[in-house]
Design a protein around this nucleic acid. Sequence first.
DNA 1: GAGAAAATATAGTGGTCGCTACAAAATCGC
DNA 2: GCGATTTTGTAGCGACCACTATATTTTCTC
Lengths: 210, 210
Amino acid sequence: MVATKSLPAESSPTETSGVRGRRRSFDMDEAVETAMRLFHARGYDAVGVAELGAELGIKPPSFYAAFGSKAGLFERALRRYAGGEANIFARAQADGGGVAEVIGRTLRLAARLYPERNGVAGCLVLDGARNSADPEARALTAALRTASVSALRDFIAGEEPERAGALAEFVMIAMMGMSAAARDGADETALTAFAEMAGRAFRRELAAEG
Amino acid sequence: MVATKSLPAESSPTETSGVRGRRRSFDMDEAVETAMRLFHARGYDAVGVAELGAELGIKPPSFYAAFGSKAGLFERALRRYAGGEANIFARAQADGGGVAEVIGRTLRLAARLYPERNGVAGCLVLDGARNSADPEARALTAALRTASVSALRDFIAGEEPERAGALAEFVMIAMMGMSAAARDGADETALTAFAEMAGRAFRRELAAEG
DNA sequence: GAGAAAATATAGTGGTCGCTACAAAATCGC
DNA sequence: GCGATTTTGTAGCGACCACTATATTTTCTC
């Protein structure tokens, strides 16, 4: 499908998604999706540029023209990840309800989403750059984690402004544990059991007088 | 988090403590300690053999004569880690008490031990080989995690045999979350707040009728 | 001391890392 | 068409990876 050979017609895979830019021999969205899957499955450092290029069907110069660097592609992958259905908290919020309800839903959704599926497990933001030797990759995920915990805190503060910080961190650390456990092989049953306990704990802490 | 019993015994049991080993130009215990610190601080893959050799003051041939391989040294480091004061659950058990008390102590001890200190944070067993490309390193930590959760389950089963598995996994996943959070910069205050909530949750789950 | 054995240092193995210089090829505006 | 721009493939950069062949030095036994 990398047929860059002539023929003026339009059947060749040109730019997708209406984004204006230079014509490319590959589909950008698809490439980012593929990279996201690889980074998610094995972590940032364990996926090399050579493998990415081979999987995406492009050679190094095209790779660097399109993404700037390996970290540049990782950033795009993270952006797509955070903007898609992996944004668990946003999905849980969309269904409405109070703080306890939304947080409980968030935890249970993670338990359903994190277990291994097609070689991918856990959360890309929480574990994708863990132990990476590249400070840039670590900073990219760290920024998203900071944003996540802030969103959690702001949401919880709507009902419990006093202890919103601690409660948000409770949720965040619980999610980190679920992501790590999933990457170590935990299945949905085990994660759901944890999510239920963590959800009950959160509800009780929320209800408790501070 | 760490196992009470663990990796299969080694061929020459007393070789590690300078007593009977062949004379070397370096101190074996000190070398393993240094390697443990490096692996703990940055993860297995991010620490190279060249750096280990330089830090230990030995050249590659001596390195391989002493440890066999990088993974061999990692195994020794893990063994020392699990056998020392990082064995949180063993320490919490040593002070006696019922299940709820010991588990609460375990969680609070982790909150005190996991935050960054001298560049080291979290748990070596839980996160030392996370995202490693080396299956051998991953297997070594995985074996210790399995032993840890088994030890937790057996202990909890003394009071609550029915739900010991789920409760042990709750503790394990909570510890994983705390380790990950610590490696991402969480301080003792934040981790302690989580540990208290998790401890209360555990006590309530234990007391609840199954 | 002499000879054997062990631990050492020098140097280098092939491989992979992220990344790039260069020039041919495809595509653009006109 | 033509020239200019852009994207591509070929090839390779220096640095690092875990690891080792070989030779020398050290340390042992006697």
